[in-house]
Design a protein around this nucleic acid. Structure first.
Length: 446
RNA sequence: CGGGCCGUAGCGCAGUCUGGUAGCGCGUCCGUCUGGGGGACGGAAGGUCGUGGGUUCGAGUCCCGCCGGCCCGACCA
């Protein structure tokens, strides 16, 4: 993409309303603009990041065996009356009336909707298990939206739902999701720790939250050091092998890891040695629940078992805050110049800086490199503006592309361009072909 | 929902206490010079001062209502 054709309204100064770093940087880098409190437009750069995050979530959900579908944002109130939540949910639910005076609502979540779909078409235990998910906009009319997309009223969420015959198989599904989440967050370059959680208003008796450790996190977290250091790495997981999933699950839930909701200082001190106790802040990016028959019972989602008896389905729900992740990634990876995207979610794989726009040789070299990067499958943001070097560097650093190729007349005379890492700031001088090859290597497999 | 703060040019702000021709920086536009870290000079555009009412000869400034936004706390992906 040529910057002169793109839409990248960057800000030199920080808008007054933005308090935390991710919000400031998302505004300054031209990723988002506020529409009203807690509601944002995603500008091209932000939208690109959102889609990359979504893509990783999709891939990992499908890898674990969950099946994508898409449910509506607007739901009928009657569905929620069946579960009893229409009255229970309170003013956080945005209630709407259509022209026929029917009560509708903008979905804050989709348990009722998916339960309705499943009960209508599933009748036998042979039809189970089923793991279904979608990525859809939600609306929760928070009393106090804040921190940009980290805590918006409208937000994009991946929510998955599991349907099993009994508690034991439902917990197998639950463990699969926990393991899939580990993979998902690691792929984004995030360290997200599963922590025992309260189940909250969605209900249920088994729940974990995934917290990204960051100073600006909204929750206090208390973890055993080794839990925060665990990593799946390149380990392939066979999700169809319950024993393997169980083993990983056990590893990751073996130590003390809780948020301030469930933290118990006495237990923490009894179970964890003094030097191993980590007290930090965290951003909640995922939440998984097993809630049994909480919805299937009142909504009569039943299956006939091998014994011929009809019994309610056992379920869980599994959320990932997709739009929140865009903010969380920035909280976890930035410096005083701007964002530093991990390669896996960067909006462009490379930035190309032309130091002397209008100089025939430099322009030609940039065009050539730009074309070859595209041919190598790398999406590049080419800064072809007639700006001075400083301005171009500042923009690239602000928007956080992990790799930059700098092309100027001085280097070209020596037959080299500069390849710079955003993260380390280090540059190497290489022949253009070598720089392209180096980048292709870095992105191989991502 | 309790407590606090703020709405003045695209962005950041001053002016409000003490009423009297609406300003500064950045950005934007035009021109010239420049060209490896947000460059220099010259010129220009851009404002119903959130909104409605009131007081006054006169309101950005004082009074009242409303709308919007931000922060702290209690709640949530």
């Amino acid at each position: 993409m040529r910057l002169t054709r793109y839409f990248l309204p960057v800000l030199k100064e920080t808008p007054a309303e933005a308090q935390i770093v991710s919000h400031r940087l998302m505004l300054r880098a031209g990723m988002i603009r506020q529409s009203s409190a807690g509601i944002y437009s995603w500008l091209p750069l932000g939208y690109k990041v959102l889609r990359r995050i979504e893509q990783i979530v999709h891939e990992e959900q499908e890898r674990m065996g969950a099946v994508p579908l898409l449910m509506p944002t607007i739901q009928p109130a009657d569905l929620w009356r069946e579960s009893g939540r229409y009255d229970a949910y309170g003013p956080e639910m945005l209630r709407i009336r259509d022209r026929h005076e029917r009560d509708m609502l903008y979905g804050p979540t989709n348990e009722e909707q998916i339960t309705e779909i499943v009960r209508a078409s599933v009748g036998s235990y042979r039809d189970l298990p089923k793991l279904l998910y979608h990525i859809q906009w939600k609306f929760r009319d928070e009393v106090r939206p804040r921190f940009g997309v980290m805590r918006g009223r409208e937000f994009l969420m991946k929510d998955a739902y599991s349907f099993d015959v009994d508690r034991e198989t439902a917990l197998q599904s639950y463990r699969k999701f926990l393991v899939a989440y580990l993979r998902t967050f690691e792929r984004m370059g995030l360290k997200a720790v599963p922590m025992r959680a309260e189940s909250g208003p969605i209900g249920g008796d088994y729940a974990h939250e995934f917290l990204v450790l960051a100073e600006t996190g909204e929750s206090g977290v208390f973890v055993e050091k080794r839990m925060a250091d665990l990593s799946l790495g390149d380990r392939a997981v066979n999700f169809d092998d319950p024993a393997e999933v169980q083993a990983i699950f056990d590893d990751w839930t073996s130590g003390y890891a809780r948020t301030d909701d469930t933290h118990d200082q006495a237990v923490f001190e009894a179970e964890v040695a003094a030097g191993e106790r980590v007290e930090a802040r965290g951003i909640e990016v995922g939440h998984i629940f097993y809630f049994g028959t909480k919805y299937s019972e009142p909504m009569q989602a039943l299956v006939t078992g091998p014994d011929g008896e009809r019994a309610p389905i056992h379920s869980g729900s599994y959320g990932i805050g997709v739009s929140r992740l865009a903010g969380a990634l920035i909280e976890a990876s930035h410096d005083d110049k701007g964002i530093i995207w991990p390669e896996s979610v960067t909006p462009f794989q490379a930035g190309l800086v032309n130091l002397k726009q209008g100089d025939a040789a430099t322009d030609a070299a940039c065009e050539d490199i730009y074309g070859k990067l595209a041919a190598a499958g790398l999406e590049t943001l080419y800064d072809d503006r007639s700006e001075r070097a400083g301005a171009k560097f500042a923009t690239m650093e602000l928007i956080g592309l992990p790799w930059r190729i700098t092309v100027g007349p001085r280097g070209l005379k020596q037959g080299v361009v500069e390849l710079t890492s955003r993260r380390s700031g280090e540059s190497v001088e290489l022949a253009p072909e070598d720089a392209i090859a180096r980048l292709a290597e870095i992105y191989r497999g991502l």
